[in-house]
Design a protein around this nucleic acid. Structure first.
Lengths: 214, 214
DNA sequence: GAGAGACTATACAGACCTGTCTACCTATAA
DNA sequence: TTATAGGTAGACAGGTCTGTATAGTCTCTC
């Protein structure tokens, strides 16, 4: 997740602006980051900026789209790689999140932060956030299916709660214990819904069926 | 949670300011809410404002403290009341959250939103947020103890992930299904750690011990 | 070599932001 | 009655914000 592109400074003005926005918007927030600061840091003339992005909102939308592309590419690849090892399940998501939390500039989920900063539920920004999260949930569901788990819809919806909660807790407390709790929750979620998997016995399967009375 | 005090407009200037801040800061965000707007809406002179709060940051701190008082009082009372009915466990938290989500002006957790808006980890605001969440976690732990559950520390830490995740999902998606998923997760958390409770058999107890390998 | 396209440099308009200053009002208590 | 506490009213300083306007530069292509 850290490096989203090559280290060569981007050639054209537009790309320099977007790269700067990727860093400043995430690090300091949308409202706290002024256009002037982005212009200064990207070394671009003001008119170049407004040629490419008619308003700050346009840059914010582009920022979110790019953040989505980068983050999803990194996340799905990391989860996929961990799942190559046999005997591993949905809980690899916890380990992948843990790697993200360890990155130097980690400041939570850019999309959760956007929702927090943007009161208007219907705002374009918030719609992009919801699209991103819907795609993440879809990926979790597909992963559950790929793992042969039943009730993938319910598992994905539940895992989303766990994922969001884990990210928020990591951002807020910086306590690494959150990862083991996240792993445990994900294991429980997958296992209770699929008692026959991962070394569960027929006795435990019966019990879990009883417990599924939510 | 909705009504935090009587409907009589507060008499003194300070109280009018705080009440207005309680509404505007939560509804529109900290940075988006200007001092001038608070002054106008509370019908107070600018000098009165700065006599009581030397800077905007002081009002933000007071806002968070009052929000903590109000929210915790409401939450603990609501959970306590639901637990009076026999046969109910930690999952009542989900129902209480659900009532909160249904309130008209719901816009997520003021404290999560504050963290999202405040990049400086060590800022006073963020410290107040962490204090608030620590107190919430402590309350969950005490509730787990009161329910006779074992491993209350782990249950509280895990429940915090579930609670934060549920709030964020509710704010983001406005999908009421999140509450049933939250309830299910809380039941699982309490039950897996305490298999003898709530109709689990001795066989299931053995299985859960095996599963506790996080 | 001339035009087009992308970019630079900088001044500026107008809004809004936090915080200060001066001046005045009013009720209460010493 | 007079000092004091708490409040009102509004101008203003100095900064930041987004966005526009004007004018010039550089490079590549026809």
């Amino acid at each position: 997740m850290t490096q989203t592109s090559t280290d060569q400074p981007p050639v054209n003005a537009r790309e320099r602006i977007v790269e700067t926005a990727l860093s400043l918007f995430y690090q300091n927030g949308l409202r706290a980051t002024g256009i002037d600061k982005i212009i200064a840091e990207s070394g671009v003339a003001k008119m170049s900026f407004y040629r490419h992005f008619p308003s700050k909102g346009d840059l914010i939308s582009e920022f979110l789209r790019r953040r989505h592309d980068n983050w999803m590419a990194w996340f799905t690849a990391a989860v996929g790689k961990k799942l190559e090892k046999p005997g591993r399940g949905l809980e690899v998501i916890a380990d992948v999140l843990g790697e993200w939390f360890d990155e130097p500039g980690f400041r939570g989920c850019a999309f959760i932060n956007t929702i927090s900063e943007t009161p208007d539920y219907e705002a374009d920004q918030n719609q992009i956030v919801r699209d991103h999260k819907a795609q993440l949930e879809f990926f979790v569901k597909q992963t559950a299916i790929q793992l042969g788990l039943s009730a993938p819809d319910k598992i994905a919806a539940t895992a989303m709660i766990i994922i969001e909660g884990t990210i928020v807790r990591a951002q807020m407390t910086r306590n690494p214990d959150v990862i083991s709790h996240c792993r445990w929750l994900l294991q429980m979620t997958a296992r209770v819904e699929n008692p026959s998997r991962r070394g569960a016995t027929s006795r435990s399967r019966r019990r879990s069926r009883d417990a599924r009375n939510h």
